[in-house]
Design a protein around this nucleic acid. Structure first.
Lengths: 208, 208
DNA sequence: AGCGTTTGATTGATTGACCAAATAAACGAG
DNA sequence: CTCGTTTATTTGGTCAATCAATCAAACGCT
């Protein structure tokens, strides 16, 4: 049962990495968590980095599924008939739900961000991770902009970057401090975004 | 020259930590960078964690000074005569400037965030770091809210959390990818925030 | 028999922390 | 001013523990 074993190792890596973090988790720890011999993890994964990336991709699966189930595909176009504004609202709700449900995934992701600061291989994975989500938000934003009475100065990409950054920053505060009211922060962000998307046309005299 | 030596070590720690990151930097490395004996760093700092915190506090100094010079004090009240809206605008400009000037500090800070995920001592420092900046933004936000035609549903604290998170997330994208146009993202955020702060009163029929 | 899988011991290297001894600076008594 | 004593600083090396990665040997299925 080769594939089953590989999965066992990836699952064990996820659990161990969430518990102790990348630098405090050894390949031996992961093997022990999986209940296999110390050397086996290296049979399936050349380096520890590869295993981290596999663990994150695996952990992202249920989130991807949740988005798809809500009618949105991170790596595909939005449904033709979708109202971008409604999609955006739903996105903020899903973001709140995500944070409640997948705390371990966020721990792992943020750990990967930290590792990526000084590890080129992980850094590439981080950039791809961010880009996928940023591009998804940009597709929604593009649709919202098209419906705005007064088109914004900022591009859809720039707005998407700001929005992804906001969510990330809010997630971080929640992970660092479980008492932090992330829902309130996301609601505030949502309120800001909606005010922006529905702002009336300004006269040039009002523009600063 | 005891204090001078301590400063030399803190400076060396900053350089070494920026270059290689917390986990890839040994106390010996730092001592070598400072040009002192391997054991000396432990004379001034009980643990590596303490040295990391000292290095960050030290690196934050010039940023704090820049804010103070702009008439804002992170840990004090806003000037009495300040127009919150102008202060907010200036804040976004300073944020752009910061990112250009203090890349090393951000590397160090983000590294600390990563370490803090699984290190209680560093985690406490991270929470304090975030809280100080969040509270500062909240003071500005409070003033802006007071001047809004239609008071928001979100609290000043929640908005501040969203804004700090946004800036952090944008900084992260820039650190991870130097080609990222952080200025555009901050401008987009600023545009959103201003649209929010100047939004007209909605009729209840318009509220969703 | 043959091959993909699994084992567990080993390798070579590095780490943070610690310490005893060397050196320098500060002090106080005569 | 000077010598002896105490305190503060600095040195360089040791320590046990840990790590990612390698590898030859054993296993088990067909």
């Amino acid at each position: 049962m080769p594939d089953q074993t590989k999965d066992r190792i990836v699952d064990a890596a996820y659990r161990a990495l969430v518990k102790r973090g990348y630098h405090e988790t050894s390949m031996k720890d992961i093997a022990a968590e999986a209940g296999v011999a110390p050397g086996l993890a290296h049979y399936y994964f050349e380096t520890k980095e590869d295993l981290l990336v596999a663990a994150i991709e695996r952990a992202c699966q249920p989130v991807m599924d949740a988005w798809r189930q809500a009618g949105m595909n991170l790596s595909g176009p939005l449904p033709e008939d979708a109202d971008p504004m409604m999609v955006a609202r739903m996105g903020f709700e899903l973001a709140k739900e995500e944070l409640r449900t997948y705390r371990g995934l966020f721990l792992l992701t943020f750990d990967m961000f930290g590792v990526g600061l000084h590890n080129p291989k992980i850094a590439a994975a981080v950039r791809a991770f961010i880009e996928e989500r940023r591009a998804f938000i940009a597709r929604i934003t593009q649709g919202v902009i098209a419906g705005m009475p007064d088109p914004p100065a900022a591009s859809a990409d720039a707005i998407a970057a700001a929005l992804w950054g906001s969510l990330h920053g809010i997630y971080l505060q929640k992970v660092m401090n479980p008492d932090f009211d992330a829902d309130a922060a996301i609601d505030a962000l949502s309120e800001m975004a909606i005010a922006f998307a529905t702002r009336p046309r300004l006269t040039s005299a009002q523009v600063v």
